[in-house]
Design a protein around this nucleic acid. Structure first.
Length: 421
RNA sequence: GGUGAGGUGGCCGAGUGGCUUAAGGCGCACGCUUGGAAAGCGUGUAAACGGGAAACUGUUUCGGGGGUUCGAAUCCCUUCCUCACCGCCA
């Protein structure tokens, strides 16, 4: 959520930048500022009346002691009138505040000036490509064939007990998954991130804090009886640790492994085959909270960190700077990581590293004290390091031989085996 | 799930309708003191939204929401949470 004050200060610039996100802010900004003017006016009036009424009350208190009951009665009458009048302005103020908030949640975050113009994912900018597609033997398979042949994942079994999009990992397939989780967590811990193992269900306030609610209500599983939501990413619980907090020590670097749950309503077809899109999947997330002046350095640091993991796994990948049309509602700048999965001959998104600037912090009321002792909003950043299923798919597709799958060196200490036959 | 006790500032904790402008303590910051430190003494120390060039100042906030009252941390209703014991249970 943007701040009205900043919209007032940077109106023209924001309108220009939001055009990159294909969002026409002109009318909504004007409306917003107008409502905010009205709000201030109502507040001034309301405060004035309440001040008078507070004054009368304390006078009444003193008069009771002197026993001047006539005077008390007349002051009471006066006070009731003032109080009634103040309620009119208070209601007006509350109504305007609600209207302003309703508008604010409709406005996406301001994109960073470097965000390229574009309509869709086709316009994303490739900023780095480290992709020697492996030379596979003739007749190399996509992962859904490999997982079946080597008994790594039983999609049918998941289908039976839950539904499609809920795979069951078995034997070495399960061990490989567990190895990847441990490996990612260790990489993150070694880079200075503090590990958390958070709850997988969050309350409504947390959903709102990270902007999952109300925007993506339909994408989250909801436990009706207790009014809790299954997390779509660890970003939700972890970022909400810092809700209503004034941070005074930086850096704040968190990592967490969690399963993630997404309804993915409306997805179908080839894109959802095998591990490509699931309702439940594992992900290791990194989250950082920083002061505004450092946040873009931190974003680069996070991009470097994710790159180093993919380097070590020897996976071909590329980094995309998302264009305005593909950038998420809440993000100011996002780098996507895609690995090349040679069995499918496809790029698969495995990580998305974003700077949200103060867009989330404003909802979260996440602040720090600046050098003048004033409270300012922090910047929040997060990224996947990494999302498991597509890494898994690319790993087994890229490392297949006609009769085996080779485990990359970096993982062998975690799997305890170097080949799957 | 049942019964009971609670929820007050960064933390502890007093506070049963107006002497609360939330006591007192701890912590923190600054100053005095010191060769330096500790102790001691003094001063300051919440947030949000407003007004004001500034000094300063108004309103709101004692878990959340609603109510009674001229006036609520205090009384009433409601809801959430915590703790204790009981029940159930990995």
């Amino acid at each position: 959520m943007l701040q009205t004050r900043k919209i007032r200060e940077n109106k023209a610039e924001y309108i220009k930048l939001l055009k990159v996100k294909n969002f026409d802010a002109n009318n909504i900004f004007n409306l917003l500022i107008d409502l905010d003017d009205q709000r201030k006016e109502a507040q001034i009036k309301c405060d004035e009346l309440l001040s008078k009424s507070n004054n009368l009350s304390s006078q009444i208190g003193k008069l009771y002691k002197t026993g001047d009951t006539n005077k008390v009665a007349s002051l009471k009458k006066e006070s009731i009138i003032i109080k009634d009048e103040s309620k009119i302005f208070l209601n007006k103020q509350n109504k305007l505040e609600r209207e302003i908030k309703d508008l604010l949640v409709q406005i996406p975050n301001i994109p960073h000036p470097s965000v390229p113009v574009g309509k869709s994912d086709l316009d994303n900018l490739v900023v780095k490509q480290k992709a020697e597609a492996p030379a596979l033997y003739d007749g190399a398979k996509p992962h859904w064939d490999l997982t079946e042949r080597y008994g790594l994942i039983d999609f049918g079994l998941g289908n039976k007990i839950t539904g499609s999009g809920f795979p069951v990992y078995t034997n070495k397939g399960a061990k490989l998954q567990r190895a990847l989780i441990s490996y990612f967590l260790d990489k993150n811990i070694n880079a200075g991130y503090l590990e958390y193992l958070p709850p997988l269900l969050v309350n409504e306030a947390s959903g709102f804090g990270t902007g999952s609610l109300p925007d993506k209500e339909g994408q989250m599983y909801h436990v009706n009886e207790d009014n809790l939501y299954l997390i779509p990413t660890a970003e939700v619980p972890v970022t909400n640790f810092f809700r209503d907090i004034i941070v005074n020590e930086f850096p704040v670097k968190c990592t967490a492994y969690t399963p993630c749950f997404r309804r993915e309503a409306g997805s179908y077809g080839k894109d959802v085959r095998g591990l490509n899109r699931l309702h439940q999947f594992d992900k290791v997330e990194i989250v950082q909270i920083e002061r505004p002046e450092n946040s873009y350095d931190i974003l680069n640091e996070m991009v470097e960190h994710v790159s180093s993991i993919l380097d070590e796994l020897e996976l071909p990948y590329r980094i995309l700077k998302l264009c305005g049309g593909d950038l998420s509602f809440t993000s100011a700048l996002t780098f996507d990581f895609e690995v090349y999965s040679a069995g499918q001959k496809k790029w698969l998104e495995v990580s998305s590293v974003s700077n949200f600037e103060d867009y989330q912090s404003n909802r979260l009321k996440l602040r720090y004290k600046d050098s003048n002792g004033k409270n300012q909003l922090c910047h929040t950043l997060n990224g996947s390091a990494l999302a498991l299923p597509r890494i898994y798919a690319a790993l087994i597709e890229n490392n297949q031989t006609p009769d085996s799958i080779i485990i990359p060196k970096a993982l062998q200490a975690y799997t305890g085996f170097d080949i799957i036959k």
